[in-house]
């Protein structure tokens, strides 16, 4: 059975793109969220194998969302999506429980490598 993924990003653009990359690689995108709070809610109901999380989002940011999700499920596998300028934030996300990160602009191969590392 293919792994399930929840994609969290406030930009439809990014969600669409990540979704395409993951689906083409055989993942099952079971949900999308556009705020941190939504991500936390959807995680609870969907229990996906993997979450991709944008760092800067309205409402509850990605870092707080990671913290919440890891609190409710210490085994949660969250992959942060970051940009070059966000190193300090990525570090905080990791300290909050994120398992890995990918840097935008996304290269499909790098995204999939990171996903493998997280799931492996």
């Amino acid at each position: 059975m293919s792994h399930t993924v929840l994609i969290c990003d406030d930009a439809i653009f990014m969600r669409t793109m990540l979704g395409d990359i993951l689906q083409q690689a055989g993942f099952d995108v079971v949900g999308e969220a556009e705020t941190g709070a939504q991500a936390v809610d959807k995680y609870r109901t969907l229990r996906p194998d993997l979450v991709t999380m944008d760092i800067v989002m309205p409402d509850m940011g990605g870092i707080d969302a990671v913290r919440e999700i890891t609190r409710s499920d210490p085994a949660a596998k969250v992959l942060m999506c970051s940009a070059m300028g966000q190193q300090a934030l990525v570090v905080e996300a990791i300290q909050a429980g994120a398992k890995d990160f990918v840097v935008k602009p996304f290269q499909p191969s790098r995204v999939l490598e990171a996903v493998q590392r997280v799931l492996g």
Partner: peptide
């Protein structure tokens, strides 16, 4: 390596 500081934190 991209964002080496963050990678180091991992």
């Amino acid at each position: 390596t991209l964002l080496p500081g963050a990678r180091a934190q991992l």
